[in-house]
Design a protein around this nucleic acid. Sequence first.
DNA 1: CTGCAAAATGAAAACGTTTGCGTCTTTAAT
DNA 2: ATTAAAGACGCAAACGTTTTCATTTTGCAG
Lengths: 343, 343
Amino acid sequence: MKRSRSRKGAPGIVEVANRAGVSPATVSRCFNSPGIVRGETRKRIEQAAEDLGYIRDRMAGAMHHGFSGTVGLIVPTIDNAIFAELIQAFAARLLQHDQTMLIAAHGYDLNLETAIVRALLERRIDGVAMVGLKHNSAPLEILATRHVPVLAVWNYRSDSSIPCIGANNLEAGLGVTQHLLDMGHRDIALVFPPTDVNDRAEDRLQGALMALGCSLLDLPANRFRQAFYDIGQAKAAVADLLRQDKPTAIVCGNDVIAQGAVYACQLLGLRIPEDISIVGIGDFRGSAHMEPGLTTWRLPARRIGEQAADMLSRGMPFADADRISRVQVPSKLMERGSVRRLA
Amino acid sequence: MKRSRSRKGAPGIVEVANRAGVSPATVSRCFNSPGIVRGETRKRIEQAAEDLGYIRDRMAGAMHHGFSGTVGLIVPTIDNAIFAELIQAFAARLLQHDQTMLIAAHGYDLNLETAIVRALLERRIDGVAMVGLKHNSAPLEILATRHVPVLAVWNYRSDSSIPCIGANNLEAGLGVTQHLLDMGHRDIALVFPPTDVNDRAEDRLQGALMALGCSLLDLPANRFRQAFYDIGQAKAAVADLLRQDKPTAIVCGNDVIAQGAVYACQLLGLRIPEDISIVGIGDFRGSAHMEPGLTTWRLPARRIGEQAADMLSRGMPFADADRISRVQVPSKLMERGSVRRLA
DNA sequence: CTGCAAAATGAAAACGTTTGCGTCTTTAAT
DNA sequence: ATTAAAGACGCAAACGTTTTCATTTTGCAG
């Protein structure tokens, strides 16, 4: 039934060894610690490997020392501008470290994470990066049991229970809202996604409310809207918001929502920033080129991705029992044209 | 130096076997062909596996039958809306088949593909999907030698040399341009990326020229611009184009370029579609919600991704020497508001 | 030359599964 | 009840590396 793959044309380490006139052990050493084989021998081996088109089998190797050279990345979604830059940077940097990336998306369904973690573990990943600090305990426990390093990316909290690298999202929410206040805005609406499974949004919202000096409940009904990270949905939500009495500015949970907000304004014939100001969070690809350019909070996705890859590639001495390593990457306001200064 | 991972807490198949009072062989069978073990025995084994938190090691298994349960996906870029939907769909469907995805991007540098293919092969992928029909021979040969199934995704050509699944990009380029002609436009400009390493763009451009009934050389200097798939670059290119004598419509190589074109128009104060019409290709996430909605050619990314995953998961009997399977998925014009009918 | 430490290499035992080939039960047919 | 066929299961040999330990070679000082 299951026809076993005839690895006919694929030479193994022993074929290389034979051709080079050495033992398989030496060939293995030649690849893993080139320093300990004699120069001339190494030349011969490399030549033989080259001739035969040898490609090592890391799985076989992984059976011994347990390292597969592959790490996992778990994101809420790929189908979206949000994590694109992160994923790309992570993958690219990993490749430089001679590692590869196994990626999976759970679509903001944290329960799916358990299945995903299992699937990754079956492939013996050396470590895993997962977006966000909020996770079910099940997958975390499984990973802990196997001693697989876990790194939370994207968000930073000084009191996170797992190692993390990311920006301070509270600061982001606070920052953009404060900017609006600084520009003289007093009537500000908020458009955010549900925060129950999204700690990034949770922190941003909290930061925004902190700047506003009030709680969500204090907010007038028409100064808050919920929308997933989806342009169409955000557009609809904002359009609905704007059809009633308008605020002078809108804080969007991220740039995707901001994009939807911009479309909503265009739909209603409102000019930005003359009629209404908009700020986003994230500074995704393209946000700078919008008309007007979107004022937003820059989250250094590329840097986070690269550094996460570095951390996971190294011996990764983070989370050594008592000391959890937490890295906060700097983020900052990008002032562009979508905010108007009020008298 | 390299502290070997103490897989202390990780039970193997033999621990499960002991606890269930059977041999490892039976446990293995219980997972791979549940049908051939007695119901009562199976229950006991499953219980034991559950208790111990057993997670099978597919690498060990892969050493025998050669299948790792992982397939590769090679795309030009992740950092972009273009392939996001494809990647997401591919990964999600793969997960349903109990497979995982190893992904890598080459950034439109085909030479990098060889290194990527090697990296994937070292992990013993069961198959690989790569965007596009144009590839160097080196990676293709390595894959062929190893009998690893290859599937080109995204573009379709009836005469492709490797199995493929995708839309007919020539038809796409032809279709949007013809639509413009049908709407009365006669002065049309083209904005496309370099076509030397991008067969999708190549086909689209050819289709557009076909509709126009001329070659690229016949085109007036100010009716063609080159821009990579980057919003900022496209915006600049189109703005440059529009500052001189304006065409009545622009055909964009894809929706990313179209987005840049829209921003360029907004920058110059041109209204769409009153002052100028714009069409894209791709129908990416968000294109439908723009103001006005972008008229574009819908490439069913989700469907391509899912079907590609299905093909690669099955025994994949495509490319059986003489018979190369080529799947063309239907694509179509999405008429929205960015094109104006001319008198 | 001789002898010895250091360096280079080889032999073989892992690693955790799968699977072909037997053996021992069942079940069903006579 | 007897026997054959089918069904369950166990044994042990793979799979392609890495790594420990032992052995051989090399370099060098005496």
